[in-house]
Nucleic acid binder design. Structure first.
Lengths: 204, 204
DNA sequence: GAGGTTCTCGTACATATGTTTACCAGCTAT
DNA sequence: ATAGCTGGTAAACATATGTACGAGAACCTC
């Protein structure tokens, strides 16, 4: 079965994707030709022109290796996965980030974020279980009702619901079963909000 | 305050990252020079040599624009976000995928995956709420106790716990409050497993 | 101050690379 | 057959681009 022209186009796009993934910069026209079996750079250029007309690639004339794929794979950003949230506002700077967690940029907005693995069942009635990863937007305050990561007396960070009643700032758990967790904790003086939980990830 | 040499290095790396993100291929040495304020290509090359010695970048001599960053940003893959799971095993092929959801490759393994936004409170006691995104590994069967997406009589897909009791295959909800959901659904004949829920994403 | 290192510049150079042109082979339609 | 389109090769061309060399300036160490 002979190779059709569309086959060559597909091969070229695949090679482009492959090369960009492997070494980070696009191949030259002659490299493409050597890979797909075209000895003349003019032949490759002919296909490239078609591919650009079809909108599959973008090119910048008068530049070397100026080929880019139209549907580039989505980039992810890495946020630090903290073992614990210590004292101070600049959480990331002070705490040594042991691991990084990749999160698609489309899922979180701007600003500094970090991740924290939830320990304990204090938020079980909010659907946040032991072992879940909380994706946190780092901020020094939050609104009433927000789920936040907060530290009390500079202890390890806990995940709770922030309540603001008059001048008082409280942390509420979400666990009907454990009577110890029914009493809101006053953090007006002693506590500090480290960030707002904006998303949750759970591995099943 | 004068600009130190390290500042220039940082600027170069930032410019590399920026350019790679924006147009997909690295800048030339002279482009770098024009951006960071170095008029001679030799100056830029000097810094590039240092950066490569420090392991921050990789270069391929005798090639144009052959610069790549050492710590390239993690790639994400896109999985289809299905509005509903229809009949048949090849879910993706048959259902028109309206949207795509970016998921870091590190979070999911190999095989075909899709995402489904959970509707209803049938799994509320498993910490799966209305509106959550279920990340599903497409597979025709699963083990007892797994949370699966299944279709009954080729209806819309539902998320339930799979139970295997003897020869019978059941779907169990996880909702103590709703008495209608207490009765397991027999799917031995009429139902079909579309995939296993491997992860959960929730926007708060 | 002497001497070394680092950084920059300007220039020259070799070539990798995209572009163009001319030409040929195969296919299709009139 | 003739014309036209497509897609290939080869060669020539212009230049973008990485590299090397020489020199000078700034800075540190002794």
């Amino acid at each position: 079965m002979p190779r059709t022209n569309d086959d060559v186009r597909i091969e070229i796009v695949s090679f482009l994707k492959e090369t960009l993934d492997q070494r980070g910069y696009p191949p030259s026209i002659r490299e493409i030709g050597a890979h797909v079996g075209l000895s003349s750079p003019a032949s490759v250029q002919h296909h490239l022109r078609r591919l650009e007309a079809d909108g599959l690639i973008h090119r910048d004339p008068t530049r070397s290796r100026a080929i880019s794929l139209s549907n580039e794979p989505p980039r992810a950003i890495e946020i630090p996965l903290l073992a614990s949230v210590g004292a101070g506002y600049s959480v990331v700077a002070e705490t040594g980030a042991s691991e990084m967690l990749a999160i698609p940029s489309s899922m979180i907005g701007s600003g500094d974020h970090f991740a924290l693995q939830v320990r304990g069942d204090s938020m079980i009635d909010a659907g946040i279980f032991d072992g879940d990863y909380a994706i946190v937007h780092q901020q020094p305050d939050a609104n009433d009702g927000d789920i936040v990561i907060a530290t009390i007396d500079d202890q390890f960070g806990t995940i709770k619901v922030l309540r603001k009643v008059g001048n008082r700032v409280l942390l509420e758990a979400r666990n009907r079963r454990d009577p110890n967790l029914q009493i809101p904790t006053e953090i007006t003086q002693r506590g500090r909000v480290q960030g707002k939980v904006i998303a949750l990830w759970r591995n099943l």
